[in-house]
Design a binder for these strands. Structure first.
Lengths: 208, 208
DNA sequence: TCGCTGACTAAGCGCTTGCTCAGCATGCTG
DNA sequence: CAGCATGCTGAGCAAGCGCTTAGTCAGCGA
């Protein structure tokens, strides 16, 4: 592990380079705390203390506790969509691209599992407007996977009876990794990614 | 949908038939509320009001809010383990039994998705002793699936390079259904179960 | 009729929550 | 040097939390 998950997320935030370092520490503390205890069980005092400040300092950088969650969730979803788009649009046939997509999607959810937990399991705590943004991004991710499966079917590489169900299964496998993967897991994220890539290709009826 | 998820759960509770109906209503309200908002965002007033009582009445039937969660979680896990054991021990070869297991596991997580959400996503809110009980049940479920895969490999029905990873993938697919399935989903739980059964068999390298 | 029990409520206690505000040190600018 | 913006703190407010308490009342065996 060469970088923390939040460091992967940080560059995707708008205006990240002009933001004070304190905002970064707050975001990091919030991700960790939301992932471990959930949004509602996390107090502003938890976040502020972990970031080395008083509770009041939080409100200089973020409007509210919910604004922190919204920022994390939107950046996390944007990063995931970018990852998926990059893999799906890369070189090779549908099978090769799908393998790469699953590998990277899995690695991301294993490595950035704290961000992943917030992104996937704290949606219900989002304010309505932030939820709308995030829901659209989720649809885009799902659509990207569906289209790649359709391309594989059209090329005769995949054999799938219901594309939407298959797409659900593919994303589902990856998302759930952020729930169960821990640093004490016997597989590295990369190993897991390779194995999941293999399993998914077989699931889609590709000759491996 | 002929019965509510909680009705499926109720018979598995110890001494359910001697328990007053009010306890049933409280449990039902708690499941619904925990599933929708999460444990910490749910107040004892929410639960009591939904069950048609004052907040104080809750404490006649349950020791605490956490005791309600523990009851739901333990009963839910016990029911799931029973389901998995029943399917794995039934008639037929490994492939046939695995198909049945995935079908039933999926149907359960789609139909009883409110219970499923509490069971799978509120573990962190459990008191330590209740968590220990539940963690043991989860291990048993995982082991049951692993052993069925091993039997399939031994019989030459499955081709799997890493049994534990494959078992993770199988349970993972089913568990995640409780996260995304809604009553507005286009597939019935039974349709989804059949399709997931098919996908899993291919994933495990079974000749379908 | 009686005392007793079990299910329940109205009121509220002690505490924690998200968030605010007056004030303070620091460092940049004219 | 004064003036001011910036980043922050200590103290604390209003609201809401889990849970308790004192008391009501219907039902029941003797």
């Amino acid at each position: 592990m060469t970088s923390t998950p939040i460091a992967d997320l940080w560059p995707t935030l708008p205006g990240a380079d002009t933001r004070p370092e304190a905002a970064y520490r707050l975001l990091q503390a919030a991700v960790e705390s939301f992932a471990e205890r959930g949004f509602h069980a996390t107090t502003t005092r938890d976040i502020a203390t972990a970031a080395g400040m008083s509770p009041a300092a939080l409100y200089i950088h973020y409007q509210s506790k919910a604004a922190l969650l919204a920022e994390i969730s939107q950046a996390g979803h944007a990063a995931t969509l970018t990852l998926v788009r990059g893999a799906a649009a890369g070189e090779g046939g549908p099978a090769e691209r799908m393998r790469r997509l699953v590998e990277q999607f899995t690695v991301w959810h294993a490595r950035a599992r704290t961000v992943g937990r917030v992104v996937n399991y704290e949606l219900h705590a989002l304010p309505e407007d932030a939820y709308a943004v995030v829901a659209a991004l989720r649809l885009d991710i799902e659509r990207e996977v569906s289209e790649l499966i359709e391309a594989g079917v059209a090329a005769g590489d995949f054999q799938v009876s219901e594309v939407r169900t298959a797409a659900r299964a593919v994303t589902s496998l990856g998302i759930d990794v952020s729930r169960w993967y821990t640093e004490r897991s016997s597989e590295t994220p990369e190993e897991l990614g390779r194995r999941y890539g293999e399993l998914v290709l077989r699931m889609l009826g590709a000759r491996v």
